[in-house]
């Protein structure tokens, strides 16, 4: 399945003018803080409406400013795992995962949605966390639960914002491999925002987009960006020692 996003928006001094596209393999987006990575994901998720743009997901048009199309976030079939995971603090892990079946068009009765959620929790090896509240989980556990929750409604595109940033090095390594396996197994298109060059290699993403100040400054296979960086940021990103990345807060 192909997807493509073209968006142009501005709010105050900030503007976003970006064109990205991909197929089944995960696409990685890198960029310094404030470059518009999170905003781009939120535009795709439908939280922000750009002034101009077009978002296609397979045969479906999610947004088209010229045609006046703007599909509501709940109908986009896009999974979103924000930075910090965005788990609902007032719900147990099980109810967090089941949330995608708790309302809207896919609503299922309580026992059934909890059964489905429990299956998915087993799938991410977190079944023992079911009755706990998110505040009591470790970063790695939160990430797995958030991933399970996003996968439950079977999204056609997965948006992961800094999925490994808040983890310590050891947890990051384990979860990175896990994430790579998971995305590969389900061959689900994904956009992964990251600060960590190791993610690019581990996810095996064929294309990397480098965003700066709301614009794509370079895109292509990671090898190309590494050997011929267009900007100082890209050079630094691929030149940095892989374990020496700092979490983005």
């Amino acid at each position: 399945m192909r997807w493509s996003v073209y968006t142009r928006a501005s709010a105050g001094a900030f503007s976003l003018d970006v064109r990205v596209e991909g197929k089944a393999a995960p696409v990685v987006i890198i960029g310094p803080n404030g470059s518009g990575k999170t905003t781009l994901l939120r535009v795709i998720a439908g939280a922000y409406r750009p002034r101009y743009g077009r978002i296609r997901l397979g045969e479906r048009v999610l947004f088209d400013s010229e045609a006046g199309v703007s599909v509501a976030p709940e109908d986009r079939r896009v999974g979103y795992v924000p930075q910090g995971y965005g788990l609902f603090p007032h719900l147990t892990v099980l109810d967090n995962v089941a949330f995608g079946l708790a309302g809207g068009a896919r609503r299922k009765p309580g026992p059934e949605r909890r059964r489905i959620a429990a299956e998915l929790l087993t799938d991410v090896e977190c079944e023992h966390l079911a009755p706990r509240y998110p505040a009591t989980l470790s970063g790695g556990e939160k990430q797995r639960v958030a991933l399970a929750r996003a996968l439950l409604p079977v999204p056609e595109l997965l948006l992961l914002d800094e999925p490994l940033a808040a983890l310590d090095v050891a947890a990051r390594r384990g979860l990175r491999a896990y994430l790579a396996r998971h995305l590969a197994r389900r061959t689900r298109p994904a956009i992964v925002v990251t600060h960590d060059p190791s993610d690019v290699h581990a996810l095996g993403s064929p294309v990397v987009y480098a965003l700066e100040e709301g614009r794509v400054v370079q895109s292509g296979p990671p090898g190309d960006l590494a050997t011929d960086p267009a900007t100082a940021f890209v050079a630094e990103f691929f030149g940095a020692v892989t374990t020496e990345t700092r979490p983005d807060t």
Partner: peptide, 8 residues
């Protein structure tokens, strides 16, 4: 935003 993307 997450709640909306989860169908609500």
């Amino acid at each position: 935003i997450v709640a909306r993307t989860l169908g609500h």
